Simulated scan of single mutants.
Amino acid sequence: MKIKNNFYIVITISVLMIALSISISFINFMVSLHSTETDLKTRSLPLTVDNIYTEIQKHVIEPNLVASMMAHDTFLKDWLMNDEQNRDKIIRYLDTIKNKYGMFVAFLVSEKTQSYYTQNGFLEHLSSTKPDNEWYFKFKKLQGDNEINLDFNNHLDNSLIMFINHKIYDNDFHFVGATGIGLKISYINDMLKRFRQEYNFTVIFINEKGEIVLSERTDTNIKSLSDTPALYNLSDQIIVKDSKILEYQKDGENYLLKTKYIPELDLYLLVEAKLDDFTKNVRQTF
């Protein structure tokens, strides 16, 4: 009888030890999981957004400042007001901008003559009936003084180019033309691709309407937040000037989204992280 009791005691202790071990492992798992998610929210994600913003300053904000400088340049304004005399001067000017700042193209459009110039010289006369020229006539009607858009230009080797356009006004604030620069999208695309591959973050930029202005070139047909119900439902929290970290579910997966408004571009930077990409090592360990 004593042996039988000892056997029950050993079994009971063994069961308790196994239960305790499982409980400790589960607690450690939950602590590690919580720690990983907390680190992602409070350190990794905000730090990555700051790194992206630094990259954006180099790749986008600087070109935007260059385009703004061109739009306020008195030489450029005077040249337009003097009936566009001596085209060589404006060609040299655009060529200097293009080479000095490493742009793909620097351009100028005259509202008076509808002439489109680049660093290579006169390109064409714009017309509202030409599909390739629609950007200019839409741009004129915008309330803002600048915009960023992506476009294919058949005159510029048909590459996808990010154009930064700025309006030019005379001394009486009359619209006299548009100027700006173009960057091959490969530069921006490579940057966004690197953040996805190295940091597991998906990066997009949207405007006030929730339309995607910049994103990595993929096979996706997503053009705005409205194409992703999970994000569209959070639009009121995403399109705000204050930076936020939001949690949501998409396709059965949990996600974190860090937002940051970039006033220099009047765009919203969105950095998306799928939690499983950061917690799978913890799950595999336990």
Rank of each mutant, 00 (worst) to 15 (best):
K141T: 09
K141Y: 04
L142W: 04
L142S: 12
G144E: 08
G144V: 09
D145T: 07
D145E: 14
D145K: 05
N146K: 14
E147V: 12
E147K: 11
I148A: 11
N149V: 03
N149I: 04
N149K: 06
L150P: 01
L150N: 12
D151I: 14
F152S: 04
N153D: 15
N154R: 14
H155R: 13
D157N: 15
S159W: 01
I161K: 11
M162Q: 11
M162P: 03
M162E: 10
F163Y: 15
N165E: 05
N165F: 07
K167N: 00
K167I: 00
K167P: 02
K167F: 00
I168D: 00
D170G: 00
D170E: 01
F173T: 00
F173M: 00
H174D: 02
H174L: 00
V176D: 00
V176E: 00
G177L: 01
G182I: 03
G182K: 02
L183S: 03
Y187K: 12
N189H: 10
M191P: 01
M191S: 05
K193I: 01
K193W: 02
R194Y: 08
F195Q: 03
R196F: 14
Q197S: 12
Q197K: 13
E198K: 13
Y199N: 09
N200K: 13
F201L: 15
F201Y: 15
T202F: 06
T202K: 08
T202G: 03
V203C: 11
I204F: 07
F205N: 03
I206E: 02
I206T: 13
N207T: 08
E208L: 08
E208A: 13
E208V: 06
E208F: 06
K209Y: 09
E211C: 05
I212H: 07
V213C: 06
V213I: 15
L214Y: 14
L214E: 10
L214A: 09
S215V: 04
S215L: 05
E216M: 12
E216W: 06
R217S: 10
T218V: 08
T218Q: 06
T220A: 13
T220E: 14
N221K: 15
N221G: 10
I222F: 08
K223T: 12
K223W: 01
K223G: 05
L225M: 10
L225R: 10
L225G: 11
D227K: 11
D227H: 12
T228V: 15
P229V: 10
P229R: 10
A230V: 06
A230P: 08
L231Q: 11
N233L: 12
